[in-house]
Design a protein around this nucleic acid. Structure first.
Lengths: 158, 158
DNA sequence: CCATTATTGGAAACTGGTTGTCAATATTTA
DNA sequence: TAAATATTGACAACCAGTTTCCAATAATGG
């Protein structure tokens, strides 16, 4: 027996499918964008987490900032260190858990990435009204918040 | 030297980050939703591709419909067949490339999934205005289309 | 009709993430 | 202070996707 679907739910389902498609495309294009800099979307994100923090971070802190697991972050960190984007310094607070900071190369590269990203985004928004973009961001964030909590009961306030 | 960022580009960048987060959450919640049915988000999607087609499909056709590679689709197909959701029939048009259709179990399961998804989406849209959802879908689709083409030149028509 | 080219499934290696285990180090608490 | 607990890095196995290579089968065209 089919359930009674609200028209809102139908649109939301379409939004979900579009989010999947956009997500895939963004990773693809992001990889292309930073490929000349010897980066990938994943490593760009890790680089950004440390760059935006402004101070050296440990692996668990980077994972926390990115919303991924400690081990997942560690994999990218190790590669970034290997390729000279990160340098390691001792952590006075935890002997086994070093801190990571951007090297000169890391900083130079991240600056280039920011430049490329800005140029890309500027080209992408051509003829998209600012109001539409703002409303979209607001709605997506609302959906995201609802995805946090379990199925809300009918009539539950807030 | 920092680039001149349009305010639209700034919002678009935030939308991108939100899309990443929403995408992750959707997969997570989707996995939870269909876990009792011995499915995952990935296998649900393959099941859906064949169910919605209405007729048996070959592996390359399923991949095409899903926008993933032939080999990626094949992995899920093999598991779905193994678990009794798909049955294989000979393809008169290509001896080495069988067609896949839903078994009785496959159909029953997909019906349950649709029910669960509808209930979930209905609960999720509480207090989200239909107009906002429609505008969001439209804007996301516009972004998606722009992601297709390379950097559009200023003044390019259509 | 035969030779070239395209499609297909299988297997393996890779990316980027997950979970789980282990031993070492920190931290908390009794 | 000593014991229990939590955090951490290394490692391995797994999921979901990718690319690459192979051999078999279709399809095309000379």
């Amino acid at each position: 027996m089919a359930i009674e679907s609200k028209p809102e739910a139908v649109i939301l389902t379409e939004i979900m499918l579009t989010v999947f498609r956009v997500n895939g495309r963004l990773l693809e294009k992001g990889d292309e964008l930073v490929e000349p800099l010897n980066l990938t979307s994943a490593r760009w994100q890790v680089l950004g987490a440390v760059a935006l923090a402004g101070n050296p971070l440990s692996a668990p802190q980077i994972a926390e900032a990115m919303g991924i697991t400690r081990q997942g972050a560690q994999k990218q960190i190790n590669k970034l260190k290997e390729d000279g984007f990160f340098e390691q310094s001792p952590n006075t607070r935890h002997q086994r858990s070093p801190l990571y900071a951007l090297t000169e190369l890391g900083n130079r590269t991240f600056a280039k990435v920011m430049y490329l990203e800005a140029a890309w985004a500027n080209g992408l928004v051509a003829s998209l009204p600012l109001q539409d973009l703002k409303k979209t961001l607001k709605t997506l964030n609302a959906v995201y918040e609802r995805l946090d909590s379990p199925v809300p009961k009918k009539g539950a306030r807030s």
